[in-house]
């Protein structure tokens, strides 16, 4: 029997593959209507089983469900390709990339056993963790980093709906793929700042 989390998980994997292919430079040179058609075709192809599993299912079996933060960033990337407009200003993207990178660099070593403290446990309903997230979301909203607040709010909502296979809130906020991506983007931005001190730091 197909479970709800199988549908949402496969939809997330389809979104990831589709967005990755649409971001290829040759695709971005196409007209928007053609990009839209191509996106539909890719989404259908990656959802069709090849052998026993679809490409989306292979991705999901290897990497698990994607976090809501990843969904939001992928959705924004597709929006940009299709519309030619950026949904948020660069400072907001820089802020969320920085926050994901720092959180990932601290969180994953601790969660994998580097030391006695396990931050992953907080994701099983710790009131302190939820309070901290609320404060962070409100603080980010106050300084106009709306993207951070939206990602946190959507992640908590999705967790309440049991959107993913995991029951841990951390898995809705963060995943290894988006953490690695954020670290690379932040490092690349820092490198650009060092090599081109006068240029814009855009990630």
């Amino acid at each position: 029997m197909t479970r709800f989390t199988d549908i949402t998980g496969l939809a997330g994997a389809t979104l990831a593959i589709t967005a990755s292919l649409l971001l290829a430079p040759p695709v971005r040179r196409l007209k928007r209507i053609h990009i839209g058609l191509l996106m539909s075709v890719i989404a259908i192809i990656v959802a069709i089983p090849i052998g026993t599993l679809s490409p989306a299912a292979y991705l999901r079996s290897g990497f698990g469900d994607l976090s809501i933060t990843t969904h939001v960033l992928l959705g924004m990337a597709i929006f940009t390709v299709l519309s030619g407009r950026r949904p948020v200003e660069e400072r907001q993207k820089n802020a969320i990339h920085g926050m994901i990178a720092v959180t990932g660099l601290v969180f994953y070593p601790l969660a994998l056993g580097f030391g006695p403290f396990d931050p992953y446990r907080l994701g099983y309903g710790s009131p302190w963790f939820l309070t901290g997230l609320l404060m962070l979301a409100l603080g980010a909203w106050a300084v106009r980093f709306h993207l951070i607040s939206i990602c946190i709010a959507l992640a908590v909502l999705a967790h309440a709906m049991a959107w993913n296979e995991s029951t841990n809130l951390w898995d809705y906020l963060l995943d290894p793929l988006v953490s690695i991506y954020a670290v690379v983007v932040v490092l690349a931005g820092m490198l650009r700042t060092i090599t081109h001190p006068g240029g814009r730091n855009v990630s």
Partner: peptide
């Protein structure tokens, strides 16, 4: 029943 994977770690559910 069909087998069901437990999600127990945040890093690709490894180990």
């Amino acid at each position: 029943t069909p087998a069901r994977r437990l999600i127990t770690t945040p890093f690709f559910n490894l180990s």
